[in-house]
Each structure stands twice: as C-alpha cells, then as structure tokens.
C-alpha cells in the first residue's frame, strides 16, 4: 500500500486527518463517527411525521414534491414505448393543468438512455441512468465503468451508481471508495462530450446495510469519494426509503456541509407512494438539513406511483372534490 494513491487529494487528506489512504485509515475515520441513536431517530422521524401541513403550504409542498420526482421505470419489461410514454408524462404531468410543474428527471436503465434523451430534448427534464451493474453491483470495476461510460456517452445528465455492499459490510472501505472515485471520473468525461459533467448519485442500498451506524458511515464515505447525491435504495430491496434512514442521511449532508462547505443532495427512493409520505419527507428535510435543501437540485424522490398521488392531491385542492386516477395518464 503506497502512501499516495491518486485519490488521496489534499481535500481527502484534510477530512480524513491521515496521510495514508487505506482500509485502516478509512475504518478509523468512519468508526470514529458518533453512533446513531436508533430510538431517537425513530422518535424524531415519527414526531415530524405527525406535523400537519395545510392549504397554501400544502399546495406549495405538493408542487415542490412534483418538481423533485425522479420518475423511474426499472423493469425488465421496459421498452422504447414505455420509456417514451413516461417521458411524455414527465414533460406534462397533468394535461388538465398547465400550472403543474415538470418533474426533475426520468430514471431508466442505461440502454434506454438514448430513447429518453430524445424524448426529453429541450424540456429541461434531466435523464438519469442507473449503472454499475444495478441493482446488485456485482460486477468487476471494468464492467461497471463501461456501463457508466455507455450512459454518459448516450447523454445521461445523472448517473445513479450502486456501492459494493459486500465490500462495505466486510470492511473493505477502500474498494468502495475507489469505485466511487473511478465512476466519478467517468462522469467527468461528460464535460468533453456534452459541456457539462454528469451528476453522480451514490446508492447506499440501506436495506442491506442493517444498521443506522452503517448508513451514516456509508453516507460519509460516499461524500468523501465525491458523490453529488446520496441515495437510499435501488427500490429492489425491502425495506427501501424509510423516514429514519432519510433522517440519518440528511444529518450526514448537514454535518458534511458544516465540515467542508460542500453541499450534497439526498434522494430517498423506493416505498414512497403517497403525497402524505412525500410531505413528511419534506418536513424532515426542512427540519434536519434546512431550507436550502428544499430544492430539486438537492433533494429528489425516486418514485413511480408517487407522482400520480401527488397529482390527485393537487387536483383535489384545485377542484374541491376527490379526484379519480382514471383522469390521469399512466396508471402506475
């Protein structure tokens, strides 16, 4: 193990407080983080979940939530047609209401990125691709990088990568770190191709990390390695995004900003199906990370069925009567 791997920049050295970058130094740093008070996290999430948001604030929150949705389809059965119809929905979520905001992004597998890029051209809706052998992440680094490069070259604005949970759980933190760094370098290749870098979201798959301490460590590791976003889950493992997990991750980005000045985004994904869930998350964001994070650039919902429920609630507020999903496109 050499004292200076390429990833050991001044930035990392300062944060880590170590001149070496290896499993041991990462382990010392990550295990030195304060433990998560599990009962406290549950209690705080439950307490904030009871907060009642009414009328104008609710209307604002619903619009904000719509603009934060990463409209996602990650099925083996996805075709050009399903992606195109999803993109049409992303551009115009509610055809009855021109005031309805667009969603933030459409999230697809990497082979469908060209279809989504074409369908969303000029709309301002971003294209996110899941890569690095999503959802398991069980492939060699070369394959993961090729997977990512494919999506970047096809024009993806955002890359959702998965960490190697096997390596993380067995304490091989350096491997996880180096993979994220390598994928981020591929994301940077987008500058030469498209004039902007691809944003990197790092999926921790919290459902497989077993403890909140691990969620906190994985969050810090991903931020140290240069992720632009930390994302809870793939949506393929249960439990996916829960309020306490999102709380722990929001605390991590808040503390990271205080430590380094870098502002990292958070994306809960999977299991958020109702407008009520979404608003609970927004309360959590506001009360944990702060108002700055109430922004589609810093907070996203990875979801498919959530959007329709948000639209039903918007419609209910606009018309005064309970709305029917029959009036919306794409029953997901």
């Amino acid at each position: 193990m050499t004292a200076t791997t390429p990833a050991l920049t001044d930035r990392v050295r300062d944060v880590l407080g170590s001149t070496t970058l290896d499993d041991a130094s990462l382990r010392r740093w990550l295990h030195g983080l304060p433990g998560v008070d599990e009962v406290g996290a549950h209690g705080r999430a439950a307490m904030l979940g009871t907060r009642s948001i009414k009328t104008t604030s609710k209307a604002w929150a619903l619009d904000l939530a719509v603009s934060m949705v990463d409209l996602t389809t990650l099925e083996g059965a996805d075709s050009f047609g399903t992606v195109r119809s999803l993109c049409a929905k992303a551009r115009v979520p509610d055809a009855d209401d021109p005031a309805c905001p667009k969603v933030a992004a459409v999230c697809v597998y990497n082979d469908l990125v060209p279809v989504a890029v074409e369908a969303l051209a000029g709309s301002g809706v971003k294209v996110a691709a899941v890569t690095t052998a999503f959802p398991s992440g069980r492939a060699s680094l070369a394959v993961k990088l090729a997977d990512t490069r494919d999506a970047v070259q096809a024009g993806a604005d955002e890359i959702d990568m998965v960490i190697d949970r096997g390596a993380f759980l067995s304490g091989r933190y350096l491997k996880v770190f180096e993979e994220i760094v390598a994928v981020r370098e591929v994301c940077d290749e987008a500058v030469a191709l498209h004039g902007r870098r691809a944003h990197l979201k790092v999926i921790l798959e919290t459902g497989e990390l077993s403890t909140y301490d691990n969620v906190r460590r994985a969050s810090w590791l991903a931020m140290l390695a240069g992720g632009d976003f930390i994302k809870t889950s793939t949506g393929k493992v249960s439990p996916a995004a829960t309020l306490p997990v999102t709380l722990v991750m929001l605390e991590a980005v808040r503390d990271w900003a205080a430590l380094t000045g870098e502002i990292i985004g958070v994306k809960p994904a999977g299991g958020i199906r109702t407008a009520k869930d979404a608003i609970k998350h927004l309360v959590l964001v506001h009360e944990t990370a702060g108002e700055r994070w109430l922004d589609p650039d810093l907070f996203r919902f990875g979801a498919s069925s959530l959007l329709n429920d948000l639209l039903l609630q918007r419609r209910r507020m606009r018309t005064g009567v309970y709305a029917s999903p029959d009036r919306l496109t794409l029953a997901t």
Binding site: G320, V321, Y322, A323, S324, P325, D326, R327
Partner: peptide
C-alpha cells in the same frame, strides 16, 4: 356530499 362529488 364528499361521496357524491367524488370522481372515483
């Protein structure tokens, strides 16, 4: 009234 006006 809420049931009568309910779209679904």
């Amino acid at each position: 009234p809420w049931l009568a006006s309910h779209e679904d």
